[in-house]
Amino acid sequence: MRAFTYERAESPAAAAAAVARNPEARFIAGGTNLLDLMKLEIEAPRHLVDVNRLGLDRIEETPEGGLRIGALVRNTDLAADPRVRRDYAVLSRALVAGASGQLRNKATTAGNLLQRTRCPYFYDPAMPCNKRRPGSGCGAIGGFSRNLGILGTSEHCIATHPSDMAVAMRALDAVVETIDAEGAARRIPIADFHTLPGDTPEIETVLRHGEFITAVTLPPPAGGIHLYRKVRDRASYAFASVSVAAVVHPGQGASGGGIASARLAFGGVAHKPWRVAEAEDRLADGGDAEAAAEAVLRGARPTGQNAYKLPLLRRTLAGVLAQARQGRGEDR
């Protein structure tokens, strides 16, 4: 690990300023992703700003009737919060589908959103990777790509965003709140927060250097049936091959399809949680799971090794919708 200096921030604005003034500085929250990468020198900051003791570990109700989740709320505490379990069950479900009990006790809301890809070439400093070393090429294209992306990929990078939590937040239309070194706040809808790889796969979000996440807000509860289904190589402690976060209102719908409305977000398939409005419209118009999946998968560019994700996504979606129609899942 490369040497670094360490400071404990006194306030969110001071934390933002401390990172902004040093291009080689980083925030450290739970540390479960950053330290993992620092040990391999994939990340090599010269200065760490510890943001753990800023009082951002509370979940509060917003005036609109939603929830404001402090950036430092641990994944375990978010999943267990009685309001989240009751009104945003898809989020609880996604959180407990990720990592292990030990990791969730440490992992934070902001750190989870900003965790980096699990592409095996990104993790191997001996291999080319445009994300780790821009311009060095992409080892995964034409290589071992079984777990990589099928949607929104580019000829420079086909990595996926590994978070489960972010997929549920996408279905819930969460908003990321930040503050910069000057103390200016901004609110970023989660749909716009993560970026596609394009020809700059090293850029993963719209955050600027030193911009500090203070909270993630959830709009008032949407009701409906909440489901998160994660398909992976093992039953536990593995990243998603494909995951579906769904908030479904069963009903007659426009033409008796059994679904009045649905919000669907997908994990394991792209550089960001994937959501397609047309898929949701088709369901509301009486279309079946196959019609919805077709809209989700439009433009998919799988590799030979990960083409299995197309039928897997179709079937996972069909399973989730069947479950929702039967009224199983968390009924809110």
Binding site: G31, T32, D50, N52, T76, S100, Q102, N105, K106
Partner: peptide, 21 residues
């Protein structure tokens, strides 16, 4: 999980956290 310890009563992986934190 071989490094699991309890910090303020909660289990964590001691390998993925800095002592100074």
């Amino acid at each position: 999980g071989a490094c699991t310890v309890l910090v303020n009563g909660r289990r964590i992986n001691a390998c993925l956290t800095l002592a100074v934190m």
